[in-house]
Amino acid sequence: MSNPKTNYLKVLTNGILKENPTLVLILGTCPTLAVTTMAVNGIGMGVAAMAVLIGSNIVISLLKKIIPDSVRIPCYIVVIAAFVTIVQFLVKAYVPVLDSALGVYLPLIVVNCIILGRAEMFANKNNVVASALDGVGMGIGFTIALFCMGTIRELAGNGTWMSGAAWLGIANGINLHWDSPIIVFLLAPGGFLVFGFLIAAVNYLTKGKAIKKKEFGCAGCLAASACSAAQKGGCNE
């Protein structure tokens, strides 16, 4: 499958726009909804996931000839879990504020389907450089999507933007000093709502061409080939 004429620029931008993992492929929905109450948490989660994604993509691409097909999924999971734990330690050590903001969702990057999906769909078929770039692109795409979600929810729900970003070197962010912001945007329903709006907006702006997945289910899931239910025609049907 490895194409000697891989267009590296295309690989990089693919994840940011054309196949944005969150807004186009609709993957990794749990962290997208859970941590985006503040814009800065979106950036934190995005960067943490990007670090894991780049690392796992590189290692899996390097090991693609060594790993036997029958145990590839457990191998990928172990590699991903190792990177997640390393990232978790680094965040705990150097950005403890982010660790408490992301909570359990930081170790749960392990089961983020973007990462296993890219390992299965891209890293085990492409060379190291392309895989690393794919990780960067997908990571940036994920971060941008989370940042947009966080911006909308924080502005509407709390009247602030980029608050708590001291660890990024930004003092206080913006505070609109609203008397009664629309709190529901910070709560669970707001997460579902804003995510739905964003996807609808992408749908509308691209006249419905962008969204690859019209429905949730195995057929559109990148990890589908890893999932025997899909082969049996199970899952959604």
């Binding site: 145990v71 390393i86 330690f89 705990k92």
Partner: peptide, 26 residues
Amino acid sequence: IIVLTLICLISSALLGLTYEKTKDII
């Protein structure tokens, strides 16, 4: 089985190393 075991061992060793390096800072 050998490959999976090796990957597990190497990952664990790397984790142990990171843990040792970061535990004092944490």
